[in-house]
Structures are given as C-alpha cells and as structure tokens.
Amino acid sequence: MTSDSEKYWYNLSTGQVEKGFASPAVDRAGPFDTAEEAAKAPDILRERSRAWADDDAQEDAWGTATDEKGE
C-alpha cells in the first residue's frame, strides 16, 4: 500500500499534476495512483458532481406525486 505522500495530486490552482504533498491541501484534489489519472481530475470531479446533483434531485423528489407522463 502506497502512502498518500507518494501518490499523485491535481493542483486546482495551477492545473498541474504533482507527486506528494507539494501544495497546500486546499489546492489539491486526489490522491490518484497515476499521473495520468490525476491529469483527468477536472473531468472526474465534474462527473462526480453531476452524479451527486442527480442523486440529490432524486432524493428531493422522493414521494412527490407525478402523473402518468412522469410530470
């Protein structure tokens, strides 16, 4: 098992991939096992955010009445 200090991070401020704790935690997304995964962080974060928003919308709509058309 590799410690997080040996993994890759995406720097949200600079857009650069970094290995280890090169930047303050507030500026880092990760950890990722490879530099290639870390480089895809913006896409991964966007997709996760979209999925969370969809889940929240489904939870908010739970129990609401809809007509036969789903409206």
Rank of each mutant, 00 (worst) to 15 (best):
M1G: 04
T2K: 12
T2C: 08
T2H: 10
T2R: 11
D4Y: 09
D4T: 07
D4F: 08
S5D: 09
K7G: 09
K7R: 15
K7T: 09
K7Y: 11
W9K: 11
Y10L: 02
N11T: 12
L12V: 15
S13G: 13
T14R: 13
T14N: 09
T14L: 12
T14G: 10
Q16P: 04
Q16K: 14
Q16T: 13
V17S: 13
V17M: 14
V17H: 05
E18K: 10
E18N: 09
E18W: 04
E18A: 14
K19Q: 14
K19I: 12
A22M: 14
P24A: 07
A25G: 00
A25C: 04
D27N: 12
D27K: 07
R28E: 04
A29N: 05
G30A: 10
G30R: 09
P31C: 01
D33Y: 05
T34Y: 01
T34C: 00
T34L: 01
A35M: 00
A35F: 00
E36G: 02
E36V: 07
E36A: 08
E37N: 10
A38E: 07
A38D: 12
A38C: 11
K40L: 03
K40S: 02
A41V: 05
P42K: 05
P42H: 03
I44S: 12
L45K: 06
R46M: 09
R46K: 10
R46Q: 09
E47L: 15
R48Y: 13
R50I: 15
R50K: 15
R50A: 15
A51P: 01
W52L: 14
A53M: 03
A53N: 09
A53D: 06
D54G: 05
D55T: 09
Q58Y: 03
Q58P: 01
Q58N: 06
E59V: 00
D60A: 13
A61G: 00
A61K: 00
W62G: 02
W62Q: 02
G63S: 06
G63A: 01
T64M: 07
A65L: 12
A65M: 08
A65R: 10
A65Q: 10
E68N: 03
E68K: 08
E68R: 05
E68C: 02
K69D: 15
K69I: 05
K69R: 14
K69V: 07
G70D: 15
G70H: 06
G70L: 11
E71S: 05
